[in-house]
């Protein structure tokens, strides 16, 4: 690992729900280097998605710190700006806006980037080309296959050129061929753009695409292993 600050550094992260009765994260630690592709695996309810949501600043932790490129995100005065610029998020469900076309969905995060409408349109086309969906720019989500929708979601996640891509079970609802294409794309983005990728999955073959696997159990990381 190089001397530069980790892309993500999580320490002692605690998150509870239902008034403290449900402890989703219980002292979670994880460090991800810039450009690294890490898969977080574990059984259902072990806190994988919660970890991802906290790194994406969609929710607040009860305790612990999350540093992204050396900066504590809790001290960031503008979490919306952090979500818009620092991280790209891909959900298990594509979460595209149903009334907008593929191109328009990709443009949505760019409203926070002070780009003109023309610049937004141009960048969305480039991103759709990147995910091999140029021909589907005008199609609405309902007119796309599951795999295509997920690729649009990846293009949207890259809209503001974040350094980190967070993917929560991105292939969970896809057939194997579509899932493979999505994983190829993520790997290609990491290789070509140097993206740091944290991918949550419960599928071993998906995790095997990562540089490193972090296993979670009961809200904590268990010792790391290098995939063979």
């Amino acid at each position: 690992m190089s001397n530069q600050a980790p892309a993500i550094e999580v320490k002692g992260l605690v998150k509870t729900f239902e008034g403290g009765r449900l402890r989703a994260l219980d002292g979670m630690d994880i460090v991800v280097a810039p450009g690294e592709f890490v898969a977080v695996v574990g059984p259902s309810g072990c806190g994988k998605s919660t970890l991802l949501h906290l790194i994406a600043a969609l929710d607040r932790a009860d305790a612990g710190t999350i540093r992204v490129h050396g900066r504590d995100i809790a001290s960031s005065g503008n979490l919306a700006r952090y979500r818009a610029r620092e991280v790209g998020l891909v959900f298990q469900l594509d979460n595209l806006l149903p009334t907008l076309s593929a191109g328009e969905n990709v443009q949505v995060p760019m409203f926070e980037a002070e780009l003109s409408a023309g610049q937004r349109r141009q960048r969305a086309r480039e991103l759709l080309a990147l995910v091999d969906l140029t021909a589907k720019e005008k199609n609405r989500p309902a007119e796309l296959s599951g795999g295509e929708r997920q690729r649009v979601a990846i293009a949207r996640a890259l809209a503001n050129e974040p350094a980190i891509l967070l993917a929560d079970e991105p292939t969970g609802r896809l057939d194997s061929e579509s899932g493979r294409r999505v994983l190829d794309l993520i790997q290609q983005l990491r290789d070509q753009r140097g993206l740091t990728v944290v991918l949550v999955t419960h599928e071993a073959d998906v995790a095997s695409r990562a540089d490193r696997i972090v296993r979670m159990l009961d809200g904590r990381a268990v010792p790391e292993e290098v995939p063979t």
């Binding site: 994406a56 700006r81 818009a84 949505v108 995060p109 926070e112 996640a157 809209a159 503001n160």
Partner: peptide, 8 residues
Amino acid sequence: ILRAVGWS
């Protein structure tokens, strides 16, 4: 979703 993708 809008909040998640960075809308203020």
